[in-house]
């Protein structure tokens, strides 16, 4: 039986992962924030061009990808709770399921890239698509890193000292990183697919 850190419903106040992790997370999110502001500024200069280019994309696909990432985030939340309850195998399985969600997200994203290159001549010379590839490309890199972290987490969750303080700190960081991936997409999705 493993120890159960934070097994109570309302744990006492503590920094998830560690303070340095939050400097990194807020820093990363703020850099994306600058990209978002830059995109909106240039979109405001020529809204008709951006909207015309955007019409090639299917907002339903963007919505589906949003739902997939939201599902994966929830699976990570449940996995962390399962681990707190000592259910290591279940926790590891849920983390693997989150990785699969990430894989489906990337598959849909890359199939969309194929569609863009099929329908648009030299899309990188179109302002909208330049931002589209920059934002979704950087985000996809984060998805890949997050999937790697989730795989490590799934392995760590099965260890004999799964909830030792050092291990728990890593698991919390991995979880927060994946939630940040979800959080960034929560903004990228409306910016690229819904704003008109």
């Amino acid at each position: 039986m493993i120890s159960t850190i934070g097994a109570q419903d309302k744990p006492s106040r503590h920094i998830p992962a560690e303070a340095g992790a939050w400097v990194f997370l807020f820093g990363d999110m703020s850099i994306f924030g600058l990209f978002f502001a830059t995109y909106l500024y240039y979109r405001g200069i020529s809204p008709a061009d951006f909207t015309a280019a955007q019409s090639i994309l299917d907002p339903n696909l963007g919505t589906l990808n949003t739902l997939i990432l939201l599902l994966s985030s929830w699976l990570v939340v449940v996995a962390m709770r399962a681990l707190r309850m000592g259910r290591q195998s279940l926790s590891s399985g849920l983390l693997i399921a989150s990785v699969l969600c990430g894989g489906i997200f990337l598959t849909l994203k890359f199939s969309e890239y194929g569609k863009v290159f099929e329908l648009v001549d030299e899309p990188l010379k179109v302002d909208y698509f330049m931002y589209y590839f920059m934002l979704t490309g950087l985000h996809s890199l984060h998805v890949m890193v997050g999937m790697g972290l989730l795989l490590f987490m799934a392995r760590h969750a099965l260890g004999v000292s799964a909830t030792s303080p050092a291990n728990w700190q890593f698991l919390e960081f991995g979880g927060c990183y994946w939630h940040m991936v979800d959080l960034l997409w929560i903004v990228i999705f409306p910016l690229l697919y819904l704003l008109r």
Partner: peptide
């Protein structure tokens, strides 16, 4: 979008229980 972000930060990333 930012209401959703706040919910993720506070409840999934557990800032609600942070200092």
């Amino acid at each position: 979008a930012f209401i959703k972000i706040r919910l993720v930060l506070m409840h999934f990333m557990e800032l609600n229980n942070a200092p």
